[in-house]
């Protein structure tokens, strides 16, 4: 994850907290239920599973990263962005009417849709920088971008399919259509909420 400074620090702080809370609670629970014996095995198994998991993901991450980079170089992402523009105009009225940050927003949403969150984050940050005009308050479009970024429509969940295959699913692809339906609905809901809420609570900005 290409993050620097404050943002990265905050994210890793949360990760560390997650690790500590889960580990401590598990230890205490195991101690109380007289089940500590099961933990040593689970700890070593966990470390081994992390390597096995990364190993099984290496191929897909490599292929997917390559395909996305190729698509970008060949102008496919630009095409997707152009196709998305009319829909995004409704979601980000201020950015699109002024033109400031509109390109970054479309690039970010396209990257999110293709499941390349790592590429989407730097794009989102540059979009945020364009949208910001000083101060510590978020504008409507910035909020919309963040909420949509937290619930992007997903075209092909490459990592998830790889995980399902690695786990030995009979039909790893069975979840794709449900994911299309749910993630698209969530994205529509995200935009709808973000467009309605500021009207309910007249602007404070």
């Amino acid at each position: 994850m290409r993050l620097r400074g404050h943002a990265a620090g905050k994210a890793f702080f949360m990760l560390g907290k997650c690790f500590s809370v889960i580990t401590i609670l598990s230890f205490i629970y195991a101690a109380f239920t007289n089940n500590i014996g099961a933990l040593s095995g689970a700890i070593l198994d966990g470390a081994e599973k992390a390597v096995a998991l990364s190993y099984s993901l290496l191929g897909v991450m490599c292929l997917w990263g390559g395909i996305m980079s190729l698509m970008t170089a060949a102008g496919m992402i630009r095409r997707l962005s152009r196709a998305l523009r009319p829909a995004l105009r409704l979601a980000f009225p201020y950015a699109f009417s002024s033109g400031v940050g509109a390109d970054e927003i479309t690039a970010c949403v396209s990257a999110n849709m293709l499941g390349v969150g790592n590429a989407a984050t730097p794009l989102a940050i540059s979009a945020m920088k364009k949208l910001q005009s000083g101060g510590e308050d978020a504008f409507d479009d910035m909020v919309t971008l963040a909420v949509l970024g937290a619930s992007p429509p997903n075209i092909f969940p490459s990592t998830l399919i790889a995980l399902r295959r690695a786990a030995g699913c009979a039909d790893p692809y069975a979840v794709i259509i449900p994911i299309w339906i749910v993630s698209a609905s969530c994205a529509v809901l995200a935009v709808t909420i973000c467009r309605i809420v500021p009207r309910l609570f007249r602007r404070r900005v």
Binding site: L3, K10, M14, Q132, A146, S151
Partner: peptide, 19 residues
């Protein structure tokens, strides 16, 4: 496949620009 890391995304997006 349909959700994302809400807390992570929102905090990274905003803290990157000091909001």
């Amino acid at each position: 496949g349909s959700s994302d890391t809400v807390v992570y995304v929102v905090s990274v997006y905003f803290s990157s620009v000091g909001i």
